[in-house]
């Protein structure tokens, strides 16, 4: 495996010598005037990408927990695995936005920390996991608001109208709808379990499938 990397290195170094096979291309001269995002805002956005992926891995742990044979709640597992992939999609949407604005031309390698280990990996029951999910969404919402705040008003005194509009109209929109949905689920499940306990959770789980 290392030999492949070495072979490529070799091919490239021969290339530099012979000037025939080149891996690099010439420096580009593209006007920079259109690049108008400011650092405080860019850095907030970069950090938010990792936040979304952290949330994704936390949902992944929930999906794994409810998949266990001793827990056996396939409906909950599906809900959480889907949520994990959705959070990943959010991260990708933020990346796409920065790319659209001409960012991420450098320091891409340090954008995501390598191993985002989830903090909690087991839950007493479905309700407690749903409550954790709702809390998680609330912190994500708060962090998106922080990004908006910084991108609207910052030390560079630059209001990034378009990004602020995108985060408000697209991301917050989804956050608030998602939170309402989770809160409703917590409510229904808790009421179901008041009299019927385990049976309530069993029935609710199948509804999620």
């Amino acid at each position: 495996m290392k030999s492949i990397a070495f072979a490529v290195f070799l091919v490239c170094s021969i290339a530099f010598a012979s000037a025939e096979l080149r891996c690099e291309h010439k420096e580009l001269d593209i006007p920079k005037e259109w690049l108008d995002m400011v650092d405080p805002c860019i850095n907030k956005m970069r950090a938010q990408i990792e936040e979304e992926l952290k949330a994704a891995m936390q949902y992944m742990a929930m999906g794994a927990h409810f998949s266990k044979d001793t827990v056996n709640r396939p409906g909950f597992a599906k809900l959480f695995f889907d949520a994990a992939s959705e959070e990943r999609e959010h991260a990708i949407k933020l990346i796409s936005y920065l790319l659209m604005r001409g960012e991420l031309t450098s320091k891409v390698s340090s954008l995501i920390k390598r191993n985002l280990i989830p903090k909690t990996t087991s839950w007493a029951n479905g309700v407690s996991a749903l409550k954790d999910a709702l809390r998680l969404e609330a912190t994500v919402t708060k962090k998106i608001r922080d990004v908006i705040k910084v991108c609207e008003d910052n030390s560079a005194h630059y209001n990034d109208y378009h990004l602020v509009d995108y985060l408000t109209g697209d991301f917050l929109e989804e956050q608030y709808h998602g939170q309402r949905d989770l809160a409703g689920k917590v409510s229904t499940l808790e009421k179901l379990m008041e009299q019927h306990g385990e049976l309530g959770e069993f029935l609710f789980d199948k509804k999620l499938l």
Partner: peptide
């Protein structure tokens, strides 16, 4: 499993690099 997720993020970074305007 963990290696799959690590690789997934690495591939995402590689994709990101190729999607910048330069």
């Amino acid at each position: 499993v963990n290696h799959h997720f690590i690789r997934s993020f690495e591939y995402l970074l590689m994709a990101t690099h190729y999607a910048n305007y330069e």
